[in-house]
Each structure stands twice: as structure tokens, then as C-alpha cells.
Design a protein around this nucleic acid. Structure first.
Lengths: 218, 218
DNA sequence: ACAGCTTTGTGAACTTGTGCACAAGCGAGG
DNA sequence: CCTCGCTTGTGCACAAGTTCACAAAGCTGT
């Protein structure tokens, strides 16, 4: 797999950020080398999976030794496109939108919140936690000027599809949807969803059934 | 599959809430019958998958007609354990915790927020959006008295594992973790995670690679 | 009662993901 | 320079999930 014959499996892509976080911890602790076994422990998966996942990135380990933490972290960041910050906009300046704007975790990981967007003219011009609120009509211009690549939808369900259409039209090719509804985006746009209540419903299912293997995901 | 030989696949369980939401919409519109094709359209999956998923619940459709909306909705709610409300507690009364407490979507779907929990004595006794803040030491008693089945962790990463241990100790068997770190819970406890920044990192990956099939999930 | 249309339920093929087990490769120590 | 111990990288078998395609079954109209 040392050639560039890569099509990284989706399941692997979803785990890379977890590894990356573990590597960041190791860097903080000034640990220079890590084995697949240790990394597996930190990431909550098994060692074979770690090795297979990392092998998709290339052959960055040393047999008998392990992986060089800094180097692996760099390669992984590069693969994930995290070498530079990507500003995001949050559409919907309601409770959830404001909370997300204030959530430090985005900026910390290279996704500064450049603007909140709302359809309500009353809110336009206000600042929440240092983030200005703009009107949805300004979105196309903002997206261009601020080089926004990612839009986060935090509107009520009914408005979500419309917002997705505007985002796509404005050239925003990555969308994260928090609205509790299914939306579609044109070909060539990546779409992911986070559905808070859905997670609770899934937990409810396992609570009711309490299979011995209820340890779902995570 | 009309017998009760069921072990519902994990992937199916994760889709049931989406179908349920679609059914709720149909009920609002007073539509009495739905085909797998229509439901698939609404849920953003294909019809064969809908039929297979629903078949795990039992044989609730009528050939040549479709599924009776109300009846299917009821059966699905029952299967998911949503026939009664399940109060939840949110641990961590910081930005994220407060925002989650204020997020109406939980109560709407049968998961009222009974309490916020924090380790900071300063915050104890305050109310956020009608939800009282209690000290973490009171958690075991609260869990018993309020029959809390689900705990939502919204603390900083460093505190998350400790909180999970306290929850498990207090008999809370379902945990939803928002802290950006891997935590473990004892056998018999269900654990799911929501990692906001992780989703953005995954989007970043597909943005960089922009495969024709970047339409990831959702 | 039967023909024709519709839609479910499901066997079977196929795709994706996981985990084992081990050969290949590296470093250390004599 | 050779041997020994350790860890990676990966082939392979298995498990989980998806999709196809079609028989079975119900409804409608004649």
C-alpha cells in the first residue's frame, strides 16, 4: 500500500480525527514514538484496525519501533486538509446557532466561526460571542469574500432545505446539518448530519433491549 | 421474519428514528398510508432498505397497499422504547451544557432535561432556562429520585471519564458523550458519542479529495 | 371468480468493514 | 555479522450491511 493507490474507506476517514486527537495528546506529553497498540488503547479501537487504517495513508511506521508521533500527525493533518484554518458560517442564530458559535472546540481545531447568518432582520448587526450576525441575503458575498468552505445549518427543520439550497448556490461545498430533517444537496457537495435527539432515541432502544453487546459505537 | 426471531441490526436501529420522524410528518398531514417508496424518499434512503428495516419490526405492511402510518408509528415507538418520557440529566453547565438544556428538541421528543449538573459550587442553585443546576455529588440521589436513565456529558474532555464513572456508579445505563475524548463505560452501559469538530474534519477530508462519491452519510 | 396492477417481504449476490495471524523488516546487543 | 525480540503491514476469512430481483399477496374492476 506504499503506492498512491488510495481510496480511503469511509469508516477509516471517520476514525482519522480520533487518531489525530490522540496524537495531539502525545505531542503535549512530549512522547515521540507510539505503537499501534498504544494508539489503539487511546482511540478505543483495536490495534489491527489502527494499523490497517494508517496503512491507507502510506507506510509511515517503522517495524519493531512504531510510529513517529509528530510525523504521523503531520501526514494525517495533511490528508485531512487541516494544514490551514477553514472558516465556517453558522446559519440560524437561535439557541443552537448561538451555542455553536460560542463553542470553543471549532476554533481550536481550525474551524473559526466567521459569521452567524439569520433570516430575521432584527438580529442582523448584533454580535454573539464576537461573531457578527449577517442576513441570509449576504451569504453569497460573504462566502466569496471570506472563502467559506463549510456551512453549518442550525435552523428549524422547516428552513433547512432552503438554506442548503442557498449554500450550494453560494458555492459552499460542505454542509453540516443540525436540523432534525433529511435534506439533500447537489452532486459534488458533501453533507453530514448531527441529530441530537436521534442519538437519545437510539440509546432508548438499547436501554429497552439491553443486549449484552449494547456498547454501540463510540 | 414474522416470528420474533429478531436481533435488529445496529445500522437499522440508527435509521428507525429517521423513519419515525417521517411518519410523524405524515400524521400531521393526515396521510393514512405510505409505501416504502414514499418513505424512502422522505428518509433519504432507498426503498429496499426501508422494507428490510421495517421487516425486522414485524410484518406490518399490506402488499399492494403499503404501511398504515399510525400503526407503524406506534409499533416503531414501542420498539424504540418511546412510549413514555425519559428524563435526562446534562453534566456540565458550561456553554454547551446550557445550550443543550435550552434546546427544545429533547423535550419535544420525549427526553425532558430534568437537571443540569456541575462541579462548580458557584453555579449550583442557579436556573438555566427553567432547569436547576445541582452539584455532582447529588447525582446518585437525583438519578434515583427522578428515575434518570440517560446522562449527557457536556464537560471539558479532561473531566469526561470521571463523570462517566460517576454516572455508571449511579446506575445510569445510557450515556451520550459530547466531550471530545474517548471514554469507556462498564459492560451493560450503552455509550454513544457526538463529536462536533470531528464532523468538520471529515468534511474537510472530502473537500480536499472531492471524490465523486463524497456524499458521505446523512 | 378471475385478471391485472401494485407493493410487500425476503433469498441471494455483492460490497464494505473487521480481526486474526503471520511474514517481512528494523534495531539492539553481542 | 548474525541472532533475537519487537512491531508493522497485509493476505485472508469472516461478519455486517446493502441492493437487486422476484415470488407472494392484496386490492380493484369486470
Amino acid at each position: 500500500m506504499s503506492d498512491r493507490s488510495r481510496r480511503i474507506p469511509e469508516a477509516t476517514v471517520a476514525r482519522l480525527p480520533v487518531y489525530l486527537r490522540s496524537l495531539a495528546e502525545l505531542i503535549d506529553e512530549k512522547i515521540e514514538t507510539v505503537s499501534s497498540e498504544q494508539l489503539a488503547e487511546m482511540a478505543g479501537v483495536n490495534a489491527a484496525k489502527v494499523r490497517k487504517d494508517l496503512s491507507y495513508l502510506g507506510s509511515y511506521g517503522t517495524r519493531g519501533v512504531g510510529y513517529e508521533v509528530e510525523y504521523l500527525s503531520f501526514q494525517m493533518s495533511r490528508e485531512l486538509g487541516l494544514t490551514h484554518d477553514s472558516p465556517v458560517v453558522i446559519i440560524g442564530a437561535g439557541n443552537l446557532g448561538q451555542a455553536l458559535a460560542n463553542y470553543g472546540g471549532f476554533k481550536d481545531r481550525g474551524f473559526p466561526v466567521a459569521a452567524l447568518i439569520d433570516a430575521d432582520a432584527e438580529k442582523v448587526g448584533e454580535m454573539f460571542h464576537g461573531v457578527p450576525v449577517h442576513h441570509i441575503d449576504e451569504l453569497p458575498e460573504l462566502a466569496r469574500n471570506l472563502k467559506i468552505a463549510i456551512g453549518i445549518i442550525a435552523t428549524p427543520a422547516a428552513a433547512a432545505q432552503g438554506v442548503a439550497d442557498v449554500l450550494a448556490e453560494a458555492g459552499v461545498r460542505s454542509i453540516l446539518n443540525f436540523a432534525p430533517t433529511v435534506i439533500t444537496a447537489p452532486e459534488g457537495t458533501s453533507l453530514r448530519k448531527v441529530d441530537l435527539a436521534l442519538e437519545l432515541q437510539v440509546l432508548s432502544f438499547y436501554q429497552k433491549h439491553r443486549l449484552r453487546d449494547a456498547q454501540a459505537d463510540a
